[in-house]
Amino acid sequence: MNSIVLITGATAGIGEACAKIFAKNSYDLILTGRREERLTALKQRLESDYKVNVKTLCFDVRDKGKVIENLETLPLNWKKVDVLINNAGLSQGLDDIQDGDFDDWDTMIDTNIKGLLYVTKVVSNWMIENKKGHIVNLGSIAAKEVYAKGNVYCATKHAVDALNKAMRIDLLKHGIKVTGIHPGAVETEFSVVRFHGDEEKAAKVYEGFEPLMAQDIAETIWFVVTRPAHVNINDLLIMPTAQASTSHHLKI
């Protein structure tokens, strides 16, 4: 087989953009997500366009049992994963802490932190056995700053930042690379999900300035994982030119 990349949350946005750039560069792919129709369509498109092998796994990373079941039942040759991109993540709600929704909090914590841990636990052990690998964790500018009404989402991404640093230390002795990628505003389905499907409200988030696109982050991740063996990029913060911080935008 070719080199293998496993991408969580591959049905849209940064995950889908990563799938395309890795397929274009002859990687075989394991793609996970919650929307089976999208996974199937993406698999067919990538296999047709790039002549690579694609394995799709439909599950929610919040479900520990399903994560373990789907990953551990893969054939042995598919467990030789070279790159893991922990991309599955989301934000729900934008409320002051006293007005927050318990269900929104649980969804963010279970997806952004626990889901990342479940997948990493399984795949890092494959990499240790294979004596190689690179884990890329998708964080956010929210991992570096806290902004108004972003409380729990920011907390989850601060946790991803801490886990990224911890993984780097724990996996050092095994020669496994670990990188945190922290984007600013990226125009994906992120805001639609945050506002529970309200596309009109989501569109206003990006009004008046040019945000990053999913392709920008995918190209950065490709750069990171193609560095020489002796080079590890620990941490990258990537912002639109028009955004200096979470609260400083240059709007036209």
Score class of each variant (00 low, 15 high):
V224T: 00
M108G: 02
T188R: 04
L84T: 02
E72G: 09
A214K: 08
A88M: 11
A162H: 14
I85H: 07
E47K: 00
D101G: 00
D49E: 14
A214C: 08
A23G: 15
E145S: 12
H182E: 04
D95M: 14
I97L: 15
T246A: 13
G15D: 03
D216W: 04
M167T: 04
K149A: 08
G197S: 06
L94W: 10
K144R: 15
L74E: 06
G65I: 09
I97S: 09
E36C: 04
V152G: 00
I14P: 00
S26Q: 15
K51A: 01
K157T: 04
K131L: 07
D216A: 07
Y206L: 01
K131R: 14
T241N: 09
G139T: 07
I238R: 04
E207W: 01
A203K: 15
I30W: 03
F190I: 15
I233G: 06
L31W: 02
E72I: 02
K55F: 01
L71H: 04
G184T: 05
W222Y: 14
N137K: 03
S245R: 11
A10S: 15
T73I: 03
G65F: 08
A218M: 08
T32A: 03
N164G: 14
D110V: 05
S245L: 10
T246E: 09
H249D: 03
I97R: 02
D96Y: 14
A148L: 13
A19C: 03
G175C: 11
M127T: 11
T40E: 15
P211L: 00
F195I: 00
D63V: 11
V192M: 09
H158P: 00
V67M: 05
K55D: 01
S191T: 11
K165N: 12
N2C: 07
Y50P: 00
F22W: 03
T156L: 11
L171I: 10
V81T: 15
A185F: 14
L171E: 04
A185K: 12
C58N: 14
I141N: 06
L163N: 11
I30E: 11
L57N: 04
V225K: 14
L29G: 04
Q92I: 12
T226Q: 13
H134Y: 11
N125V: 03
K131A: 10
L74A: 07
H134R: 10
E219K: 13
E145Y: 15
V193C: 03
R38P: 01
G33Q: 12
H134K: 10
R194T: 12
G89R: 04
N232Q: 09
A166Q: 12
T220L: 15
T156I: 07
E72L: 13
R62A: 01
R38C: 05
I238H: 09
E207L: 02
S26E: 04
P228M: 08
L138M: 14
R34S: 10
G15Q: 09
E199K: 14
A185P: 07
V224N: 01
I233K: 05
H182I: 06
F102R: 10
T111E: 11
V152A: 08
T111M: 10
I233R: 10
V225H: 02
H174C: 09
Q98W: 13
T220A: 13
I30V: 11
A23R: 00
C18F: 01
L39S: 06
S124N: 09
